[in-house]
Write a protein that binds this DNA or RNA. Structure first.
Length: 292
DNA sequence: TTCCAGGTTCCAA
DNA sequence: TTGGAACATGGA
């Protein structure tokens, strides 16, 4: 598939911490879309893939989003504009809502490396085995599977105190037909209110689910990295007292979250989620050695 | 060893 | 309504 005028960077999109279960071997990425194992690689403007349709690739990797238009709308200052240029082609993936929801409950207070480990173990133990070109995959366990999974099973996968949240929330969601379809039709705020009712889902996890799987691009998740980026590059939008307060403690209180989240959504607008993902990635990269 | 991680929950004030 | 401790575990 030739990308022509469609800016896309497969490596950045899969490495930036929005999805957890993709693996790269040599220049091919291996992962699962829907229930199918696929492999994909990018060589300049060409995407090569196996076992998946072009339409599914386009919808999963958000290739139908007009990234030029999104950039134009969220480029409110030099910093975000430079960040967009630097990581140009990073796109928001349209994940499966169920997998995304459980993944981000697991993602609380964990490093991305540790999250990956948990989710791979969960899939290997309770998912379905698939093989493509001798490469072995395990699908993410379906909601029904969680009826027979015990707390001890989840502890064995390293979920720790998140185990009870995953079990309670999966049971609640199983009891509601078409739950995710309903949420897609709700406004951002209505859908967020619904999600926060579930155990283990607070404001940040809800925003991640809304952005990464339910198409709510105005969602602006604020985690430790985004908070750091705001303190460094956007502190002039807040009082000195507020910046000093959020700089002192590691965690973010509910009211602080509201302030930072509202800033992101009003400042960047309807595609705030895209701005967030570029800020998140920039801040994580800049913490590593050899950056710049 | 120690520190920290894509936070949420619970409880006291 | 708000502030702060507790929470399980693994990677760096």
């Amino acid at each position: 598939m030739r990308l022509f005028q469609t800016p896309f960077n497969l490596d950045l999109t899969l490495c930036c911490g929005q999805v957890f279960k993709w693996e790269k071997k040599e220049d091919w990425w291996y992962g699962i879309i829907g229930n199918n194992p696929i492999k994909i690689r990018q060589i300049n403007k060409d995407l090569e893939f196996e076992n998946v349709s072009t339409n599914l690739i386009k919808s999963y990797f958000g290739l139908n989003d007009n990234l030029h238009e999104i950039k134009r709308k969220i480029s409110k200052d030099n910093f975000i504009e430079n960040t967009l240029t630097r990581f140009w082609g990073l796109r928001i993936i349209k994940q499966d809502p169920w997998e995304c929801l459980i993944s981000y409950i697991c993602a609380t207070y964990k490093s991305i490396a540790a999250i990956r480990k948990m989710l791979f173990e969960l899939s290997e133990k309770f998912g379905e085995k698939k093989i493509l070109n001798d490469y072995v995959f395990y699908t993410f366990p379906k909601p029904e599977k969680f009826q027979s999974i015990t707390k001890s099973d989840l502890l064995d996968c390293g979920l720790g105190y998140r185990s009870k949240y995953v079990l309670k929330t999966s049971k609640k969601i199983l009891s509601r037909d078409s739950f995710f379809d309903e949420l897609k039709n709700f406004s951002y705020l209505q859908a967020k209110k619904q999600l926060i009712e579930f155990p283990g889902i607070g404001q940040k996890v809800a925003d991640c689910i809304l952005l990464f799987s339910l198409g709510k691009t105005e969602a602006f998740p604020v985690d430790i990295w985004v908070k750091r980026a705001i303190i460094k590059y956007y502190s002039n939008h807040f009082s000195k007292k507020f910046i000093s307060k959020i700089s002192r403690s590691r965690s973010i209180s509910n009211s602080e979250y509201n302030t930072l989240n509202e800033f992101g959504r009003t400042y960047f607008g309807e595609n705030a989620g895209y701005a967030q993902e570029y800020l998140f990635h920039f801040e994580r990269m800049s913490s590593k050695k050899n950056f710049l």
